[in-house]
């Protein structure tokens, strides 16, 4: 029990459970809508294509989007504080370039991964420090970070570099069998592990509660004596770290490094977070919702792949449309709650 509740008079306590349940329901509503949408899309797919309704199609949604899941996790933290990180796609590309180049020069895979994580986390930390201490909009700082990371990619190489190193190719081909013929890739387990950690951190630690508090009202959070400064900086460092992990996962997936890779991936990550029910103004949202958001984006692509006649640009149009619908939904919920 927090000290506050012991101070609350009993008379005030009575109506609170009902009210909080109602508010809780409204808070879950956007995420529940996303889950509903995902199930509906899966059902429609199953109705249209008999082979759609298989466990492996569902698991492939994870296998093909491990990097996006990890990115969305980092982005969820940033957006929950009311910020935004536009650099993630470029940091993914930078991570891929660095690991591909160093592996080609015969570096040890473990050392490469550690270095990449340090670069990603360091870049994020740097952006967080600038955002916090110079009070510049996250949007502009991470935009500069995006230019910097993308530029460093070009400096490393303009060509695509293949990855032939044993550990990376092993991770790319490895299949972890589940029941029956079903399997997942090791990357999926890693991504889900990160989701689990993020879930725990957001909902069961002081840091997580501070993240929500900053998004709710930064000024109040500061007046409450919460460590607003360090939390805000850490959130960007976390996002940078997640981008580096996503870069490594994407390397496992594509087995190459290319400076133009992951272009526009920041938009996909933001879209997944928004579709997953996180309010862009911060303070409300769930990391699990973001995962469902990624799955929705994945199923849109699966649809287009199954259809065969639809061109790839429909993906962008549909994602834009979904983004719009969920933003409008958010406005609706926000108005009701207000």
């Amino acid at each position: 029990m927090s000290p506050l509740s012991t101070l609350t008079p009993r008379t005030l306590k009575k109506p609170s459970p009902a009210r909080s349940r109602l508010r809780g329901g409204a808070r879950y509503a956007p995420t529940l809508a996303t889950v509903g949408l995902f199930l509906a899309m899966f059902a429609v797919g199953a109705g249209m294509y008999p082979s759609f309704l298989s466990g492996q199609v569902f698991l492939n949604l994870f296998i093909d989007n491990t990097f996006l899941i990890v990115l969305a996790v980092g982005m969820t933290f940033v957006i929950l504080t009311g910020g935004i990180d536009l650099s993630v796609g470029a940091v993914v590309a930078l991570s891929m370039m660095v690991s591909a180049t160093l592996l080609q020069q015969g570096w040890n895979a473990g050392a490469v991964i550690v270095l990449v994580l340090l670069i990603g986390g360091g870049l994020g930390l740097l952006m967080g420090l600038i955002i916090q201490y110079f009070d510049i909009q996250p949007f502009i700082v991470t935009l500069a970070g995006m230019f910097l990371a993308r530029g460093l990619c070009y400096v490393i190489s303009l060509d695509s570099i293949p990855v032939t190193e044993g550990f990376f190719t092993g991770m790319a081909q490895a299949q972890i069998p589940l029941s029956g013929d079903l399997f997942v890739s090791p990357g999926v387990l890693l991504a889900l592990g990160i989701v689990a950690i993020a879930f725990f951190v957001l909902h069961h630690t002081r840091f997580g509660r501070t993240v929500y508090a900053i998004g709710g009202n930064e000024h109040s959070a500061m007046l409450m004596g919460l460590p607003v400064k360090s939390t805000k900086i850490l959130v960007y460092a976390l996002s940078g770290l997640c981008s580096a992990v996503a870069g490594i996962l994407f390397s496992f997936y594509s087995l190459s490094g290319y400076s133009l890779a992951a272009q526009g991936m920041e938009l996909d990550a933001i879209a997944a977070v928004v579709i997953g029910g996180t309010l862009l103004t911060g303070g409300t949202g769930y990391v699990l919702g973001s995962v469902v958001g990624v799955l929705v984006l994945g199923i849109v692509q699966t649809f287009i792949a199954y259809d065969g006649t639809l061109s790839s640009w429909w993906t962008k149009i549909v994602i834009g449309g979904l983004l719009l619908v969920f933003i409008l939904l958010q406005r609706l919920f926000a108005r009701k709650a207000g």
Binding site: L280, G320, L324
Partner: peptide, 27 residues
Amino acid sequence: TIGVQPIIATLVLMTAGRGVAQLITGG
């Protein structure tokens, strides 16, 4: 009218717009 944050409202068109342009040119 709807009151969406500008960065998000225009993000919709930023994402979908290129798709629309590709639709017009047929890729």
